[in-house]
Simulated scan of single mutants.
Amino acid sequence: MEYYKQLRKYVGHQPLILPGSNVLILNDKGQVLLQEREPGIFGLPGGLMELGESFEDTARREVLEETGLYIGALQLCQVYSGPDYYVENSNGDTFYSVSAVYKTFEYSGEILADGVESVSLQFFSPTKLPDGIMVSYRKFIEDALL
């Protein structure tokens, strides 16, 4: 079971601090790979840290799970945290996100949406992102690439 789900048994909907990683995977045209998480809602591959993982371990595991890609060298762009990253889910769970954002041009494997966490995967120009991209991911991309 995922670590944060174990914590929820004890704290209910009370705020948690949840660390995780996101990765800007860039192709040779400088386009960024976006994950369609549900129809019309886009984000970057990534997710929450599990016990014993580093931010880089989390990035690599989540990218593989969500895209089918193995990633090479990672460059840390920035770590995002604070009141702007407070989230209240529709089920009442609340948390503060701490997100390490990386970028890489090094990847191998076949891009494959798993149909569960990823509806589709597609490269986009950083200056022409889809309307349905979540606000935090737009900021991560703009800060890293523009």
Score class of each variant (00 low, 15 high):
2 E>C: 10
4 Y>E: 15
5 K>C: 06
14 Q>S: 11
20 G>V: 03
20 G>L: 02
24 L>F: 01
27 N>E: 06
27 N>K: 09
31 Q>T: 08
33 L>I: 07
33 L>Y: 00
35 Q>T: 09
36 E>Q: 05
39 P>K: 10
40 G>A: 07
41 I>G: 05
46 G>E: 00
48 L>G: 10
49 M>A: 14
50 E>H: 10
53 E>A: 10
57 D>I: 13
59 A>V: 08
65 E>P: 04
66 E>T: 12
75 Q>D: 13
80 Y>G: 06
81 S>T: 12
83 P>D: 15
83 P>I: 14
84 D>R: 12
86 Y>T: 13
86 Y>K: 08
86 Y>P: 02
87 V>E: 11
88 E>S: 13
92 G>E: 03
94 T>H: 03
101 V>R: 01
102 Y>P: 03
104 T>C: 01
104 T>G: 04
105 F>D: 03
106 E>D: 14
107 Y>W: 01
107 Y>T: 05
109 G>H: 03
110 E>Q: 10
111 I>V: 14
111 I>L: 10
118 S>P: 10
123 F>N: 11
123 F>A: 11
125 S>T: 09
127 T>W: 03
127 T>P: 06
127 T>C: 07
127 T>K: 06
128 K>D: 15
129 L>G: 10
133 I>T: 14
136 S>V: 13
137 Y>P: 12
143 D>A: 15
143 D>P: 02
144 A>H: 03
144 A>I: 01
146 L>H: 09
